[in-house]
Design a protein around this nucleic acid. Sequence first.
RNA 1: GCGCCCGUAGCUCAGCUGGAUAGAGCAACGGCCUUCUAAGCCGUGGGUCGCAGGUUCAAGUCCUGCCGGGCGCACCA
Length: 561
Amino acid sequence: MKDTVTQLLESALATLQSEGILPTNQSFTPNVGNTKDKAHGDYASNIALIAAKAAGCAPRQLAETLISRLPASGAVDKIEIAGPGFINFFMSTASSFEVVNDILARAEQYGRNNFGNGASVQIEFVSANPTGPLHVGHGRGAAIGDCLSRLLEANGYNVTREFYYNDAGVQIKNLALSVQARAKGLTPNDEKWPKDGYRGDYIDDVAQAYLAKETVTADDREVTAVGDADDLDALQAFAVAYLRREQDLDLKAFGVEFDVYFLESSLYDSGKVEETVNRLIANGYTYEQDGALWLKTTAFGDDKDRVMRKTDGGYTYFLPDVAYHQNKWERGFNTVINEQGADHHSTVTRVRAGLQALNEGIPKGWPDYVLHQMVMVTRSGEEVKLSKRAGSYVTLRDLIDEVGCDATRFFLAARRVDSQLTFDIDLARSQTNENPVYYIQYAHARICSVLRKLSESGIERGFQECVGDLSLLTLDEEKDLANQLAQYPELIRNAANLREPHHLTHYLRELAGHFHTYYNAHKVLIDDTALRDARISLYLAVRQVLANGLDLLGVSAPKEM
RNA sequence: GCGCCCGUAGCUCAGCUGGAUAGAGCAACGGCCUUCUAAGCCGUGGGUCGCAGGUUCAAGUCCUGCCGGGCGCACCA
């Protein structure tokens, strides 16, 4: 519909150029927007204001000339010039409802496109180290990363979901020492408890499972415990597997699956880290100082140089990060998105700088980052900081257990990534219209309920069956709904291109709102069967779009509530 | 001190690439269930878009400075 208007304007602009009214040495692209106010029609363009200078006349005058050159179209009812020179398009009622047929014909495909043309995109998200249960922040990353993945898939991209984690390093040592301490009967308050040890109750679970010689199977590994509390290597291997499995269970409960688990240790095993260092040295971007090896990241916009190899000979996390991203590049991903907490923001410049120093033709701004801000959890207006199991933070599992997967996903994806998020447990649990998840799901369930009612009277209607004469739909509420349904495909494009999944939640809230208004104002199961069928067709279209949108969020669309 | 993010109604937040009188929900107040799920709907009130400049025909949106909050500034990830 909007495309139609754009095409009409493009045609008129071309005519004006050929007539010499507009210069041919610059191009004019009509910007067609949705109107906020119905008095401004269905669509509006500001092209006359933009092009007025080039045309050398007043915007309103240009608008008038432009309109006179517009090709005739049955879809447009009326065109007006308003304000400083906006061109407002009023679409015909009949054309507004074409979208209903379109939706029912395309069903779950409605809103999807092939914009990406099968191009590969890799999204790395969550990437929690196996040192404890996932926390709320990981949950936000999981909700955003997975929704973004689904959005990109809906736009025709081939998405690889990847989870990167460190299974060696200092923190894993701390983990092993903590489990060992528990296995030897120590508790976090004992004097001999390891410094920087992990204090959560779950450490004791790991220790007990280790002593019981359990076997754990995670998505990417299986380990049987040795049971010897003095064997630190065995303790470490078991602890990593145990906590990996735990995270897998959390993710499964959250409805998130990964295609690839990538281990930091594999970069060492394969010699990739060594190779990367050598490359950086050979390119002349390194120097020795204070017994450490530094990379001149300041040559690429960092505010200070960074240590790559520590005085003890070990590497900092930064180097494997560079090696890892080099590996991503070598795997052929032109588009890579890293979804991370904003507390890791400082790695962005460093990783990009390291990749530039490799001199491999990797683009400057590669890879992309989506950084989400912190999450605060509240209950009864008070901040919740602790969970018994993890000790110092609220776990994702706590939320899923308490408010359910649907509400957790929705709430964690519902805010712009760069604003801090307050997760209100009471709100997420509430079953009233103040809870957007239930509000949207209820709209879907209501439509299903009406259809059940209809079938009780002997009339079965398939999910995609449009038997109604749409020209019978004349109400404002009906046109509002149709217009909003028509905006869905554009929303899917924008949300993916901007990497802003929260738009989807707002759209669905609004669509559900329009539906509830309509539902309450006008009965659908009425004696006038022709009008009834037309309305049922619109209902079916609304249900389809609600279902499609919820699916992209990973939230269920219940048939009854 | 330096870097990044945020600052919109009492509260929680939208506002897409600058566009026409700034929008929702909640909370407050007043209505609607012999009628398809009231987990719903309708109505009313509520705003110097943190402050000050600048760019523009047009600024919540872009630029600069300041104020306030968060995060980061480790040879931790």
